[in-house]
Amino acid sequence: MTPAFRVGDRVRVDDRYEPRHHRTPAYVKGKVGEVERVCLAHGRPEILAYRNDGGPPRTVYRVRLRQCDLWPDYNGPAHDTLEIEIFEHWLRPVEARN
């Protein structure tokens, strides 16, 4: 499958409720970062957890976020960052508002 995003693209982590196992932690939902790396594609955790193969693989990205964007009261230098793996179906182009 062709990845929808490229290294350097600005992306927003989708801020939506998902009751199933989905591996997108609440603290990054709605936050904006930048694609640091395009990783391999994997089955969707939302259905992989329920005894099947996870369906067609979805690309996983390493997204780099600034700590001061994650936490408005971040107690550290502005250059501190956090990187996290996010599945493609949890990312939106940054122009699109949720």
């Binding site: 932690p25 994997h42 700590q67 230098p77 501190d80 793996e85 996010i86």
Partner: peptide, 15 residues
């Protein structure tokens, strides 16, 4: 030191 970037890696999925 403050002039060194701290980068946290949250290993949430497949890596």
């Amino acid at each position: 030191p403050d002039d060194v970037e701290v980068r946290v890696h949250d290993s949430t999925a497949e890596l």
